[in-house]
């Protein structure tokens, strides 16, 4: 509903500020619940939730041994999958389908952001020139950018050996892109490149998963490649390959999201 000109900016603020003639519980005309009553309800809700939480916290006792599932993952996982990082073996292989779903959710949310913040072309509006970043920021960004990218690639290529993985590495790459956009506000990201990287890596991820059905035990099984020597870079079968694809996909998606939010800010009002 577009706002008509004579209405104040915040209609309800005025409504609340006006001295109440009669403390009504519910104002049928405006649909407002008495603010004091509302606060009271919220207060009691929080008290009740806090009671549940304190019960949880007081009766909590730390585990002294792993659950049977986790014991299986910890004792059999390294032999079965060859990944030194047990979290990675759970994320990429044992619960690989969840991760595929997670990547899909991230893709949908990136697409949603792109749809909602889409640029509307208007011929007569001019994008105001952005203030350039200072020389220091620009030089530092030029120096740091390659290192940030290399570090991101390192994190996702070593996801099966060290803490890290595709999502973390992708986030690091996207933070590098954010640095670029901060230092060079006029820079234009190539949406064709981002879209291409994203679709290619998403497609390859699914292809690797399907290859698991054909060559190994099931969808997303990592044993389509030899497991290699435990603890080396080229080990754990398909896990590093999957994580490279996940890293590229997450990196390009998050870069696109960051770029959408940026472009929107400088856009003239329509």
């Amino acid at each position: 509903m577009p706002r008509s000109g004579r209405e104040p900016v915040c209609a309800s603020a005025r409504r609340y500020a006006r001295p109440q003639r009669r403390a009504t519980v519910f104002d049928a005309r405006t649909g407002n619940v008495n603010p004091m009553l509302k606060r009271l309800f919220i207060f009691f809700t929080l008290i009740l939730v806090a009671a549940i939480f304190s019960d949880v916290a007081l009766n909590y006792s730390e585990h002294t041994e792993l659950s049977r599932l986790a014991q299986h993952y910890a004792s059999k996982g390294p032999e079965e999958l060859g990944a030194a990082n047990l979290v990675t073996s759970v994320v990429v292989t044992y619960r690989g389908l969840d991760t595929l779903g997670e990547v899909t959710v991230l893709f949908i949310s990136a697409a949603g952001v792109g749809l909602m913040l889409r640029r509307r072309k208007h011929p007569d509006t001019v994008v105001p020139a952005r203030k350039p970043a200072s020389e220091l920021v620009e030089t530092a960004a030029r120096l740091l950018m390659p290192m940030v990218f290399v570090f991101g690639v390192y994190v996702f290529a070593n996801g099966h050996l060290t803490p890290g993985g595709g999502f973390q590495g992708g986030a690091i790459i996207a933070s590098g892109v954010l640095l670029l956009l901060l230092a060079m506000p006029q820079a234009q990201l190539s949406h064709r490149l981002i879209g291409f990287t994203e679709s290619l890596s998403g497609f390859s991820y699914v292809v690797v998963g399907v290859l698991g059905i054909v060559l190994a035990g099931g969808f997303l099984d990592n044993r389509i490649l030899p497991l290699g020597s435990f603890g080396s870079l080229f080990s754990a079968g398909a896990i590093p390959i999957i994580y490279v694809f996940v890293g590229l996909k997450v990196g390009s998606e998050l870069s696109a999201v960051v770029d959408r939010f940026r472009s929107d800010e400088s856009k003239p009002e329509l």
């Binding site: 585990h63 041994e65 599932l69 910890a74 619960r95 991230l106 949603g112």
Partner: peptide, 27 residues
């Protein structure tokens, strides 16, 4: 490994949850 490490399953779930949370926040 089975006696000295923490449970990897919640860590994996949190990894998923962080990414989903990021997506939801962006939307």
């Amino acid at each position: 490994a089975a006696t000295r490490v923490v449970d990897p399953v919640p860590s994996a779930l949190v990894l998923t949850a962080i990414v989903i949370g990021l997506g939801v926040t962006a939307v």
